[in-house]
Computed example of a mutant assay.
Amino acid sequence: MTQDLYDIRDPRFLDCVVIYAGMEEIASGCRWTEGPVWFADQDLLLFSDIPNDRIMRWVPGQGTSVFRQASNFANGHTRDRQGRLISCEHGSRRVTRTEADGSTTVLADSFGGKRLNSPNDVIVKSDGSIWFTDPTYGILSDYEGYRAEPEQAARNVFRLDSTSGALASVVDDFTQPNGLCFSPDEKRLYIAESGSSHDENVPSVIRVFDVAGDRLTGGDVFCTIDNGLPDGIRCDMNGNLWSSAEDGVHVFSPDGHCLGKIHVPQRVSNLTFGGPRRNRLFITATTSVYLLYVAATGAQRP
């Protein structure tokens, strides 16, 4: 029932959602869904089923099929400015680009002469630079990758220059950095701290940084997730931040105030906006993917 779907904390939440819209399960039968990315020009959604080592494809009116298997335990995805798929691979501990002919180009697999941990989530800035997080989830066990000892001294957030190929650490003080997204004007970068997954003393927060070219400053706590932890995050065109959580999707105003929640039947890992008008919210949640029409418009252009 739609009245059980929404938890309204602030009247502004009503400008974000279609209060009478219901949620639809569009894919199921996975083990842990992640990394949704919308391809507007092809009218399809790609998402990861990490433990099953595959990337799935969902097409409106056609349903779900396998896009790639094996996927090197791919997790997060995005598109670059040329429309190519950018992927974080746990198994190979690298970030790759899928070319138009289907071949794969390795963009980053090491830093300082040592292997990356397990790239997790990735975004592309309007200047073409690629930003990604590198926690250790893919090497903690053989469930979402291959068990290994980390070679990096920190769990970094990286910036990859698309022209020179230079890789630089822009943040190194997270326990486990996870989802990340830019504000609509790209003046702010939000990064989720998901370290409470293995250490209850780590706060379940999203931090915000000021962006100045290829550098970040600040890093204050933007908001706290009060049920579970933040994983994937996205902004809408009004600057509101949409975050995954244990009980669904939490929506925060640009000043960090919780406007409301969208309750989801399963633990949410990630989300993205899509559809012709970027007003469809695709939610990856444990074994399924859900679709919900919203009043907001996604800031990230697919």
Rank of each mutant, 00 (worst) to 15 (best):
G218C: 05
D53S: 00
D121I: 03
F158Q: 08
V211E: 12
D142V: 02
I130S: 00
C181V: 00
W242A: 02
R277Q: 15
R79V: 10
A296H: 01
P119W: 06
R207F: 05
T286P: 00
T133R: 01
K187A: 12
P230C: 09
S183F: 04
F182W: 15
G274D: 06
E99Q: 13
E24G: 02
V294Y: 06
E24S: 05
L292Q: 13
P276E: 11
I206L: 08
D10E: 10
H263S: 13
F282M: 07
A108F: 05
S71W: 00
N120Q: 03
G113T: 05
L259W: 09
L259A: 02
D185M: 09
P265M: 08
D255H: 12
G219R: 05
R93V: 03
M237V: 14
T96Y: 03
H263Y: 08
P265K: 14
Q62Y: 02
G219Q: 12
R207W: 02
T297F: 09
S164M: 12
Q176K: 13
S244D: 08
R188F: 14
L44F: 11
R147T: 10
T286L: 15
I8K: 02
T163Q: 15
D49Y: 05
Q62V: 09
S288D: 14
S164F: 13
I123W: 04
E151N: 07
R31C: 02
S92F: 11
L259I: 08
F174W: 04
T78C: 08
R93S: 05
D185S: 11
A70T: 13
S92D: 15
G195V: 07
V264H: 01
N178C: 12
M23H: 08
S48Y: 01
N279W: 01
K187F: 04
D220T: 11
S269R: 02
S164G: 15
N240E: 12
V59W: 00
I139N: 11
D101M: 00
G138M: 00
